[in-house]
Amino acid sequence: MEFGFLLGDQPLSVPPEEHLDLLLRNVEAGQRAGFTHFTIGQHFLYSDYRWLQPIPVLARLAAEIDDDVRIGTTVLVGPLAHPVQLAEDLATLDIITGGKLIVGLGTGYLEREYAAFDKPYKKRYSMLEEMIELMTALWTQERVTFEGRYWQVDDMPTHVHPVQRPRPPIWLGAMKEVGVRRAARHGDVWTITPQQTIDQVADLVDIYVAERRALNLPLHRFPLRRELQVADSYDEALHDFAAVARGKYVSYASQGMGLLDQERVEREFLENVADHVLLGTGEQVREQITAIAQRLPVGPLLIRPHWPGMDAQQSARYLERVGREVVAPLKDLQSVGFD
């Protein structure tokens, strides 16, 4: 089993140079702890927290990563970009990383971001599908003619192609059945979000697999997002997780993230999150991950090493412990295949 983590946001009170330094130090500590995937999400005009933009951050990180490490976006808000610029930016990033880029795409969930870019929020899903088709053409063809509903290219040359052929892997984010079916049709994998129980995930995996097989498309293991907290006991892990994560979950819910109920998050945080967070001693967490791997074809497992308010030393201690008690002992764990 491979492990990775998300490089996250910071409160606006943290100076931006400290924010970048924290991300770099997290990657350094993560590599020492055995993590092999580093990803970053995207928001625009966000409230309360700062999201550094992924493509320049990942270009900076490319100089820091080991040969066995991959970096990626989880996820870019695809429809807010023009496919030609995004395709060339990502192809350039794939060149900079030496072919280690993963392209995670989604539609986001904030209508105000679409309003700021003068993009139709209600058409975001069809826009995402079309932009993937156009970007794939731009990455794989010498000249492109494209007549779409939203974008057109009339017999134009392409000049920036990715190192990975035919293109970097595309991970598509989704939370519900319709999005999972879209991921099956238009991407390489569905990135499993952390807000669902394993039972819910299992049902969606079945839907994804059936859709891929109907289209005669190859199957790949699913990147699994999960929050993870290790402590000397389960109760201590639950307490520690609440201490660092409650505020961020309340923020997510207040800004309209699906699958989170703001009132319940504020009133019953632990009851609302405990069934989809990996919690306990190192042994308990290893058992939880092993049980998932025996049920679902997953990997890598992506966690969050840092919550707003934690400093670099706290993140490093967290990563060292997770590396020692979870990552290293499970390095030979293989998840189930596809029946």
Rank of each mutant, 00 (worst) to 15 (best):
Q10H: 15
D66Q: 11
R50E: 07
L24M: 14
N216C: 11
D94H: 11
T39M: 14
V327N: 08
K100G: 05
T107D: 09
T290D: 11
G99L: 05
W190S: 00
G4P: 02
G72S: 06
T191K: 05
Q196P: 00
V103R: 01
L259P: 00
V298L: 10
K331I: 11
G148C: 13
Y125K: 12
F5L: 05
H239E: 11
H239G: 00
F146I: 00
Q141F: 08
E17V: 11
P166S: 07
P83Q: 09
E113L: 01
S233P: 05
L134H: 03
L128S: 08
I292G: 06
E320K: 11
A242W: 01
A328V: 13
L58E: 00
A184S: 09
M127G: 10
R212T: 05
P15T: 04
V163R: 03
E64H: 12
L52D: 05
R185Y: 02
R225I: 10
H276R: 11
P308G: 08
Q288K: 14
I40Y: 01
P15V: 08
V75R: 01
R70D: 07
T97S: 15
F338G: 05
A174D: 03
P218S: 07
I65G: 06
A291I: 04
E64G: 00
V163A: 00
D94V: 05
L172G: 06
G187M: 04
L238K: 13
G258A: 12
A237R: 06
R213I: 06
S335D: 13
K248H: 13
Y109C: 09
Q31L: 09
I55F: 00
I303E: 05
P16W: 12
Q255I: 07
E130Q: 10
F146R: 02
M127L: 15
M135P: 01
